[in-house]
Design a protein around this nucleic acid. Structure first.
Lengths: 330, 330
DNA sequence: GCAGCTAGGGAAACCGCTTACCGGGAGGTC
DNA sequence: GACCTCCCGGTAAGCGGTTTCCCTAGCTGC
């Protein structure tokens, strides 16, 4: 590998001069030497060693993003938003996926700490286990003690800046909208009970129904993915309307309906949550609660970068979008 | 930030001993001192500074992946496969997205070179511009000259180990299968002419039709994404079967058909390419050519890591999958 | 009992870069 | 013309680790 010293030697200047020319410095360098150094660097194909720069400067230009699963379009959109924002700041991105294992999340945070990344984004639902959350908070505290910045997309449970989707409220609005169509018997494909996002959406939905004086929905737990929705849908009783706590599950539920000859929306209405772009052409078009995922990712990055003294929690409202997958009751 | 020196001081040992205890070394350290060091590290919350380690060791434990667009499930799946493989090797991943700008790809490679990442994966279609490809090759050569390893998922145009989807062949098989259903008039939503993946699929399809003695398909160019498929579909003439060169475009085409009252498959058959998982519940179910995307990503990483002297090019065959979106002609 | 080992501990030389500090010459001021 | 600034070049001290080399014990074997 060619080093700065090689370049300096070739250009016949000192290390300092070469450094000043090739990597932005406040100090000026004369035109002659500057040209010589640039030529030498170009001829040799010099690339600064960022590890050395990071060490010398004491600050890195990379940020870390930890998501549950990149192949889930929810996380892909969030990560993409954050990465675009990072690019505008000239920052590189290290992405880690936990595959929904909270221990992995802690491990990744520790690794990113070791990398001395400038900031870390923890993206995705928190879990209801206080022990795990506690350990994550400890790890986070260590990282922050060393000058690291952090933000979270999800629930405000970590004591860091957070972009928090209004899951309860969004689900409640959805429930009111669906009740407004005349539905009274509901089922909720509620996902895993320990996932706070799933639990919040489920609870928000049920609470709104209760407020309206409607019977409590049938709650069916299961995995948070397509197959979870598919399986859960098979256990739905006499509900006329099914709420899956995310779009991917809703798509699974629609598939289950189709296979069993249950027509949507004629026989049963179905709604999801998130408004995943990739799913927008689904037939029947999915009713859902839209979240501005890319913006949320970008916003979280800004929060992480602009350390504020009191922790900021930004609630992001969802927008109910009713499409073909639901119908008005006769 | 707490440093190794802090730990050594607290434990009352030398820097060397602390280093040997905390970061795997061939040298043994006595049980007493070892315990002292470990306790000190734990108490202080020590995390090794990876930038310093990388510098001292001269080798980093991160790899880089460059993709076009993370929110495209095609790339998400590929990246996920590569990341899982990286995790099994204890490697971290830096992800860059080019948003389909080849210049960005070059810039990212340069940055990853500067980061001295152990290996780089260039994922996604090459472009037909020899000038751009040439500059990318130059950059790649510099990186490799410095000991960097690289692999590519796409076309074998860079002179590095490559996992190459058999686009021509897959599209040809698809054409034969569709022709076998009795179709004779085809349209191809061909994507942008300069994208090699799109061009190969389009050409493979047309070549197979020619071999069968069928008329040449109507070729409609446009963007490589959902909206590109949507727009292109509106220009289809009297074809009874439409081939979109990727699934996302096919979904756009299906949406266009739906809006115009064109029934699929009754009025027109539609097929895509890739077999994107997220789209598997689409109605009507999309006929396509399945590619084992996650495996391909993982494979590419292995190739990059195991430097082989003659460059390896692995062709990956696609499997034709006919579903509801196509029908047999009467 | 002594040469010859092998552990295991420490001092110090790097790894490649940044930057505080030093010094010499050109130009401006009185 | 002496003095003071700038301006710009170089020297060298870090940044936080790893690793070579040296040294002291404590063993082994005869």
């Amino acid at each position: 590998m060619v080093t700065l010293e090689d370049v300096a030697k070739q250009a016949g200047v000192s290390l300092a001069t070469a450094s000043r020319v090739l990597n932005g410095s406040t100090r000026q360098v004369g035109a002659t030497l500057r040209a010589r150094v640039e030529r030498a660097a170009d001829e040799l194909g010099y690339r600064a060693n960022i590890a050395a720069q990071t060490l010398a400067r004491g600050a890195s230009n990379v940020i870390g993003i930890v998501v549950h699963d990149l192949t889930d379009p929810y996380f892909a959109a969030l990560a993409d938003g954050a990465m675009r924002a990072a690019a505008t700041h000239g920052l590189l991105v290290m992405v880690g996926t936990t595959h929904r294992d909270p221990e992995q999340e802690i491990a990744y945070l520790s690794t990113l700490h070791a990398q001395r990344v400038r900031a870390v984004l923890l993206v995705g639902s928190r879990v209801a286990d206080p022990a795990v959350t506690g350990r994550l908070r400890d790890e986070l505290a260590r990282y922050q003690a060393g000058g690291g910045r952090a933000a979270c997309v999800g629930q405000d449970l970590l004591g860091v800046d957070t972009v928090a989707p209004a899951n309860r409220q969004g689900a409640a609005e959805l429930a009111r909208a669906l009740a407004g169509l005349g539905h009274t018997r509901f089922a909720v494909l509620a996902g895993p009970p320990h996932l706070v996002t799933a639990a919040d959406r489920s609870a928000g939905f049920a609470a709104a129904l209760a407020e309206l004086g409607l019977p409590a929905p049938q709650i069916i737990h299961g995995p948070f993915d397509r197959d979870g929705g598919y399986t859960a849908a098979q256990q739905v009783g006499d509900a006329t309307c099914v709420f899956a706590v995310n779009d991917v599950m809703a798509v699974g539920a629609l598939a289950a309906c189709r296979e069993r000859g249950v027509r949507v929306p004629e026989d049963v209405s179905v709604a999801g949550f998130d408004d995943i772009v990739t799913l927008r052409d689904h037939v029947p078009a999915l009713s859902t609660v839209r979240l501005p995922l890319q913006d949320m990712g970008a916003r979280a990055l800004e929060l992480a970068l602009n350390e504020t003294d009191p922790v900021v929690v930004e609630e992001v409202a969802g927008e109910v979008v009713l499409r073909e997958s639901v119908r008005r009751m006769p």
